[in-house]
Design a protein around this nucleic acid. Structure first.
Length: 791
RNA sequence: GCUCGGGUGGUGGAAUUGGUAGACACGAGGGACUUAAAAUCCCUUGCCCUAAACCGGCGUGCGGGUUCGAUUCCCGCCCCGAGCACCA
């Protein structure tokens, strides 16, 4: 009878539920804890192939580690607040809460049908007041520590979502969620001081064994550069500039302020005021995208003012130009057209002086006109050494300050949207912003939750909720109406998994000590400069407040690849190339899908793999073959010790390093060997089933039970290989002449060098090649190569 | 432009302290079983040479180098993907 996954799989899923097979205690005597984390999903309403790839393939590792004797935490939950759920609800005219909870119910079923070994008793739902009470509490801890402030901020505004976005949520000038073009606004917003942690976020990466790709992405995003700050006088005002090239100070020929710089009005002369005002208006009207467009012609106007270069007292013109950004450095730059491409382009256009700096040891700051030059130092002095020398010179003349700058901006966390965590702050006319001690501050029920054009959150419509007394002085105040960015919710959810029911604290410290840091965190590469960066920061901030152990939340982070449609393109409804996992599971089974996804490519590398409707059939054929193999099982069978122990070794090592595709290949190879036997010893086949169990758990359980086992195979101990069982009686040597293989030789495994080489000479084809000349050298690689060099 | 990955059959991919390139799977071709088909099983499958096999030659993006031997190490290019990008 052929294998019927439609009855077998639900049976074992029910068994695991009934037995609470995957509920994990925080401590188990004699077992080491292992925390495996996957990113929890948005409750979008349906699981797609990407979810399967994200949840089921790491599940192989969870099951493997469990059998190896680890106490494994593999939890699941829902990232339930935020724009995706809200926008979907708006589109369908539904209540976001109802929509979200219905979706979660459906997705729980789908996740159950995967057969993944999640500990569902630890489920975390971020829109549940029992959860977001602690999101609010943690937010207030950061507020009290001075890491959260409300202030005027140059923000990214999505006109479609009608809310502020963090820098990380703007992709190439477009909203990360809806892809509309983002505009700039100046608004009073809540900011979290992630920039205070910029250095630690970079430097602590060194201690983590993460892939370089992830580390460098984060470093690029944080964008640290080292240089110095130099003061220029403009009239009575002192304006600092940040420069990475203080060694070019003698080549400064003009000075540029960002159009938004607060001093522009003050320093502009009457003669130039009109053009300055006009220019500032034209810049303000531009979107971020227009302003930063590549190869854009540089523009700017002269203010009429002059600045004094501190190193030589020279008077240089002050311009404003939008290639200088108000959000970086001091919003002002010293322009060195001979040594900076942008300054050069600008100087060329507006006919400003270009002056190169030639540095040598006798006369360090000689000057000379010229075109742009990149190598500025003679006699082997490199730029870095020159910069160091320049900073020394500036400091000895009381002009220099060493300074670091970052591209990273503070994290703007307030959102003008309904479906999020209310910011637990009360604005009091006398006391200012005051934390609300009565947590949770629940999201008010309102009928019209649509976002508004004016930038005010819809929560402002809940007037009863809005007006409340100041917890400090009792005066009537107003609640903050903005909600928190959903990335705040996800910055600590992995902590809550350690202690999900706790109503006294966000998590008990002992339980955090037991589980944290996460041993392996698998997720999508799109979160490298969003969620992963935010949560690292959040964790460090909590650590500084002595709320969590350790400075890093994740020991190892890996980015998974992408499953593409059968045509090689990203799956999308419009392309008609979407694979519905539910349909495939119905046809071929959950074991087949998960094993196929493991087989499709290495999980420890970021790649994109096209789904092959034919390829998955190959995996199903293997499952059917295993099912048929069990009929050959007897008390004793053929000797398969060598391939069996090789397979144990290979699968143990490669599962641990997430090369799951080669493990599936090895299982298939071993399956073929069993097919060639006349009978299979039950003890051998049980080892095979154990190796198979993480990959095809339902099938493995079914046959395991057929053999009379009462306990789940997931509770059995992972097989251990024995090196002595892996030694074959004979080995095959490749025989090379001048590096080319000319023959093969099978000899006893323990044959020594002389024996092998002597026999190798006699191999017919080899002898022919040796007769051409004299043997100059002999090569011997035990067990592999015997070789001769002739000439 | 800077940074980090990567380029292997018709396809997805194996194999690197340098040691028989192409495991495993898909696809393709041939055969067995069958009245027939499906399913299953067996054989072949990098390219060239050959009727076929042996033998031989070529072959891991391109060009050099080191070595008895290079997908692997070194130098110089090309291409693809990802991140950053008017960041001073």
């Amino acid at each position: 009878m052929s294998y019927n996954h439609q009855t077998v799989e639900p049976k074992w899923q029910q068994f695991w539920r009934d037995q609470k097979s995957f509920q994990v205690a925080n401590q188990v005597e004699g077992k080491e804890n292992f925390y495996l984390l996957v990113e929890f999903p948005y409750p979008s309403g349906n699981l797609h192939v990407g979810h399967w790839y994200a949840f089921c393939v790491p599940d192989i590792v969870a099951r493997f580690k469990r059998m190896q004797g680890y106490n494994v935490l593999y939890p699941m939950g829902f990232d339930a607040f935020g724009l995706p759920a809200e926008n979907a609800a708006i589109k369908r005219g539904l209540d976001p809460e109802k929509w979200t909870y219905e979706n979660m119910d459906y997705m729980r079923q789908q996740i159950g049908a995967m057969g993944a070994s999640f500990d569902t008793s630890r489920e975390v739902v971020t829109c549940d007041p029992k959860y977001y009470r602690w999101t609010q509490w943690l937010f207030l801890e950061l507020f009290k520590a001075g890491l959260v402030t409300q202030r005027d901020t140059h923000v990214n505004w999505c006109p479609d979502c009608k809310t502020v976005l963090a820098n990380e949520q703007v992709v190439d000038g477009h909203c990360e969620r809806c892809d509309n073009e983002v505009t700039k606004k100046n608004m009073k917003q809540w900011n979290v001081a992630i920039t205070q942690y910029a250095d630690r976020l970079i430097d602590d990466l060194d201690s983590l064994g993460w892939p370089d790709q992830i580390k460098t992405s984060q470093k690029n995003w944080i964008g640290r550069s080292e240089g110095s700050e130099v003061d220029f006088q403009i009239g009575n005002e002192t304006v600092s500039v940040f420069t990475t090239r203080p060694d070019t100070l003698f080549g400064v020929t003009y000075f540029v302020l960002s159009p938004e710089h607060p001093l522009v009005d003050q320093i502009s002369t009457d003669e130039h005021r009109e053009s300055v005002v006009a220019y500032r208006q034209s810049v303000a009207a531009k979107s971020d995208l227009e302003r930063t467009e590549l190869n854009k012609d540089k523009t700017g106007v002269f203010t009429g003012a002059y600045a004094i270069n501190p190193v030589n007292g020279e008077s240089i013109p002050v311009w404003i130009a939008d290639y200088v950004l108000i959000t970086y450095g001091t919003g002002a730059v010293m322009a060195v057209p001979a040594h900076d491409e942008r300054d050069h382009e600008f100087a060329h256009k507006y006919d400003l002086e270009i002056r190169a700096v030639i540095q040598n040891l006798e006369n360090p700051f000689a000057k000379e006109g010229g075109e742009i030059c990149n190598s500025d130092f003679l006699d082997g002095l490199d730029v870095k050494a020159g910069v160091e020398a320049a900073i020394d010179w500036l400091e000895s003349n009381d002009k220099g300050r060493r300074k670091r700058n970052y591209k990273l901006r503070d994290w703007t966390v307030s959102r003008q949207r309904f479906w999020g965590v209310p910011i637990p702050i009360i604005h009091c006319p006398s006391c200012g912003p005051v934390p609300d001690p009565n947590l949770p501050v629940e999201l008010p029920k309102i009928d019209d939750y649509l976002p508004r054009e004016d930038g005010r959150s819809p929560l402002a419509k809940a007037t009863d909720w809005l007006h409340t007394a100041c917890p400090q002085c009792g005066e009537m105040g107003e609640r903050e109406t903005d909600t928190l960015d959903t990335f705040v919710c996800s910055s600590w959810y992995f902590l809550r998994y350690c202690d999900p029911q706790n109503d006294q604290a966000f998590a008990d410290r002992e339980k955090l000590d037991a589980w944290m840091p996460v041993d392996l965190y698998s997720g999508g590469s799109e979160h490298t400069t969003m969620h992963v960066l935010y949560s690292r920061f959040w964790h460090k901030a909590l650590h500084d407040l002595d709320l969590v152990p350790g400075v890093e939340p994740y020991t190892h982070r890996m980015n998974r690849g992408l499953i593409m449609g059968p045509d090689g393109n990203k799956m999308s409804k419009s392309k008609g190339n979407v694979i519905d996992p539910d349909a495939v599971v119905k046809e071929l089974g959950s074991d087949t899908v998960r094993m196929y996804l493991a087989f499709i490519g290495p999980y420890n590398e970021v790649g994109s793999y096209p789904w092959s409707t034919q390829g998955i059939v190959g995996v199903r054929r293997f499952i059917d073959r295993v099912w048929r193999l069990r009929e050959k099982v007897a008390a004793t069978g053929d000797d398969v010790a060598v391939p069996l122990h090789k397979a144990i070794k290979k699968i143990t090592e490669d599962t641990a390093s997430l090369k799951l595709n080669t493990c599936v290949a090895e299982l298939m190879t071993l399956g073929k060997i069993f097919e060639k036997t006349t009978a299979i010893a039950q003890s051998d086949f049980e080892i095979f089933l154990q190796l198979l169990a993480p990959y095809a758990p339902h099938l493995a359980e079914e046959i395991w039970a057929e053999f009379g086992h009462k306990d789940s195979i997931t509770q059995s101990a992972w097989p251990v290989y024995d090196e002595s069982c892996m030694v074959a009686d004979t080995v095959t040597y490749a025989i090379q002449v001048n590096g080319k293989v000319r023959g093969q030789l099978e000899v006893a495994a323990d044959a020594d060098k002389d024996t092998v080489l002597a026999a190798a000479r006699e191999v017919e084809n080899v002898a022919k090649w040796l007769s051409d000349g004299e043997i100059r050298k002999e090569i011997f690689v035990p067990g592999k190569i015997a070789g001769f060099v002739v000439s």
